[in-house]
Simulated assay, not measured.
Amino acid sequence: MKSPRGLILAALFAALTAIGAYIRIPFPVVPFTLQVFFVLLSGAILGPRRGCASQLLYLAMGLLGLPVFSGGGGVQYVLHPTFGFILGFPVASWVVGTISRIGRGENFWQYLAASLAGIAAIDAIGILVLYLNLNYLAGVPTSFWRAMQVGLFPFLAFDAAKGVAVAIVALKVKEHYLFS
């Protein structure tokens, strides 16, 4: 990723992820946002290294205090119950980029499988950190099952829809532009 083009594309997807944090659909407890859409798309379009770099940049911007997370920014955000989902963004982008490139057979089903795997990575890290934050930082005794009921199940259908949208958009972008 030493080329200026690679740096610009990584910065672009970091910015898109930040914008996605503020495109909200109200929902009890935590609103739906389009962050995950841009995280998955970054891996599908940029590949594992550039996609992961874009999400690391997004994470760094937020931790340095820029209000790029859906609830603001700053180092104190690590104490936020949903911070684990953001920690999963670089991993998810890398997973999506890696799976999307297997055999160079980039097609709708491969992008969809990659997106669903990326969502699984975000959710696995997010639910684990949510469980730990609630039990050990917030002092709210919570079972792992309850953490999944609150932080995972309400979002599955919406995240699956984002995965389908990413597969469609990635396929169209790859047909018309050379990003690899």
Rank of each mutant, 00 (worst) to 15 (best):
Q55K: 03
N133T: 14
P90H: 10
P154W: 11
F108K: 11
M61V: 13
L16Y: 09
P4D: 08
L7A: 11
V91I: 15
G163Q: 08
V164A: 11
F89V: 04
V91M: 11
Q149W: 08
T17P: 01
R101W: 06
V96C: 11
H80W: 09
G71M: 12
L57S: 13
A120N: 02
L128R: 00
R104N: 15
A117Y: 02
A165D: 07
M61E: 15
G118M: 04
H80N: 15
L16R: 10
L64M: 15
F158K: 02
F13C: 09
A121W: 01
W109R: 12
S115L: 03
S70T: 14
F32I: 15
K174W: 04
T82Y: 04
S93T: 07
K172P: 00
V36E: 08
I86F: 04
M1K: 08
N107K: 15
S42G: 05
L16E: 05
L178F: 14
P154Y: 09
I119D: 00
D159E: 15
T33K: 01
G51S: 09
P141Q: 10
I45N: 01
F38N: 00
P67Q: 03
A53L: 14
E175P: 03
A124F: 14
F89I: 09
F153N: 01
F13G: 05
P31K: 11
L137T: 05
K2S: 07
I125C: 12
A15Q: 03
A161N: 05
H80L: 08
N135Q: 00
A113V: 11
A21W: 03
Q35L: 04
C52S: 15
G97N: 06
K172Q: 14
I119H: 02
G163W: 02
L7G: 13
L34F: 11
F69K: 07
L59F: 07
A147L: 09
G62F: 05
L178E: 13
Q55T: 07
G65Y: 10
V164P: 08
G163A: 08
V173N: 02
S54D: 07
L132E: 09
R50Y: 12
D123G: 03
V164Q: 02
P154I: 08
G47L: 11
G43E: 00
G105L: 10
I127S: 04
S70R: 13
Y177I: 10
L128Q: 02
G126N: 01
A15H: 04
P31V: 12
A114C: 04
S54G: 10
F155Q: 05
D159C: 08
F108E: 04
P81M: 05
V140Q: 12
G62K: 03
L130F: 12
R5V: 03
V169K: 12
H176M: 13
L137V: 12
L41Y: 03
R5Q: 14
F108Q: 08
M148L: 13
G71A: 15
A21C: 01
I102M: 13
V95I: 15
T82I: 01
L63W: 06
V166G: 04
G139L: 07
F85H: 06
W109N: 11
L156I: 15
A113G: 06
L116S: 00
E106N: 06
V29A: 14
G65F: 02
A117T: 00
Q149M: 13
L134M: 14
A157P: 00
L87F: 01
I127T: 11
V39F: 01
I122D: 03
V166S: 09
A114P: 00
I19D: 03
F85W: 08
G139A: 02
V30N: 06
V29E: 05
